[in-house]
Simulated assay, not measured.
Amino acid sequence: MSLRSFLLATAASAVAFPALADVNVYTTRQPELIQPVIDAFTTQTGIMVNLAFVEEGIVERLVAEGDRSPADLVMTVDIANLSQIVDAGVIQPVESEVLEAAVPAELRSADGRWFALTTRARIVYASKERVADGEVTTYEDLADPKWQGRICTRSGVHNYNLALLSAVIAHHGEEQAKAWAEGLKANLAKKPQGGDRDQVQSIWQGECDIALGNTYYMGQMLEDPEQQDWANSVRIVFPTFEGGGTHVNVSGIAMTNAAPNREEALELMEFLVSPEAQAIYAEENNEYPVRADAELSDLVASWGPFTPDTLDLTELAGHRAAALRIMEEVNFDG
């Protein structure tokens, strides 16, 4: 599609966006994952919310719409996506004592341009049959030759793995991060392909013994009758960085520059970090709330406690370009 065609299509979609709600939200997350907490907000406040699923091109859409955008808020996952939206200049800072009190400093931007709503850990799925308790301890350990031919993972250039490698860079520098990526690649049982759940299937099939994945995929597998055997064949292990904690990423929210319904949008943002909303949102997505006093779902609690890494997520986003370069230099997916 040419730039002109894209801009015309975007403008048309902006006009077609239903202006029936009090707050309009662009989301890269499937609306059904968010709807329960939105329904709770509407019930409590009477404010109607319209969720528009924008699977791809959300930044380009916001840039093209500019001040005409009907979107008040943007909800997305991964710090790289949040940073990209901020860097595009389409987000305004938000000052809110409620948000600042609820969301830890390392899980929001210092200038108030984005706030995390939930977190997910990048963990190891380990075979219950072939991996002993305590055999996996650190991320650094995954590059040890003892794991040769025993690890599965999705593409090294996927955002989830780039964020993890960005954390390795933050902890150890680019030179050691490249050595780690090379060691991890040398330990792969097969060429990276598929998603995180596919790696667990490979463990179940005996193709590998451990795999990198996000925590919430365990919940998704257990909800799918065809994937329950995969889930039951592994346990969740929370590796840590040497001198650090377990790598986490976020889902988050930001207010657009246009925000035609700014007051109502801010009310929604503040509701989403309330204990009630945090419990609903985290349970629906098998994620962790950002509020320390919000309840975990029974399933998430069953995975056990862990210590999140306290690296500033904005710093991790700043290392993404270097992480991508390293993955390409070592030909991780080759």
Rank of each mutant, 00 (worst) to 15 (best):
N285R: 09
T76R: 03
T76V: 13
E135C: 03
T256E: 09
I34Y: 06
P192G: 11
A163L: 14
A9H: 11
M1P: 13
S251M: 11
D229Q: 15
L184W: 10
V25S: 04
S13P: 02
E174G: 07
A179C: 05
D133H: 09
A292Y: 04
D209K: 11
N214L: 12
K178S: 11
S109T: 13
E315A: 15
Q30A: 15
A179L: 14
V86G: 09
R154H: 14
L165E: 00
D67S: 15
A143R: 00
P31Q: 10
L142E: 07
S297W: 01
Q227I: 00
N285F: 06
V94T: 06
G243T: 07
L222K: 15
T45A: 09
N161S: 12
L212P: 03
H319W: 01
N214M: 06
N161Y: 07
R154L: 15
V136L: 07
A323C: 05
S96P: 07
L107N: 02
A163V: 08
P225T: 08
L99R: 08
A163M: 13
V54A: 04
Y139N: 05
E207Q: 13
L184N: 05
E315V: 15
K128M: 12
G89N: 11
Q44H: 13
R325D: 10
Y160I: 10
L7A: 12
A102G: 03
Q220E: 15
E276W: 02
D72E: 09
E140K: 09
L73P: 01
G183T: 09
W147C: 05
A294Q: 02
A64Y: 03
D198H: 09
S166L: 06
V330H: 01
L3H: 13
D141I: 02
R68Q: 15
I34R: 01
R120H: 15
A132N: 12
A126I: 08
P145T: 05
I151R: 09
L268E: 05
V25C: 07
A189Q: 00
T76G: 00
A231R: 04
A186C: 06
Q199W: 04
L299R: 11
S96R: 01
G318A: 13
D333W: 05
I79F: 04
I123F: 04
V136Y: 08
S202G: 10
A71P: 04
D293L: 06
V90D: 02
G304L: 04
L3W: 11
A259I: 03
V237Y: 02
K191T: 14
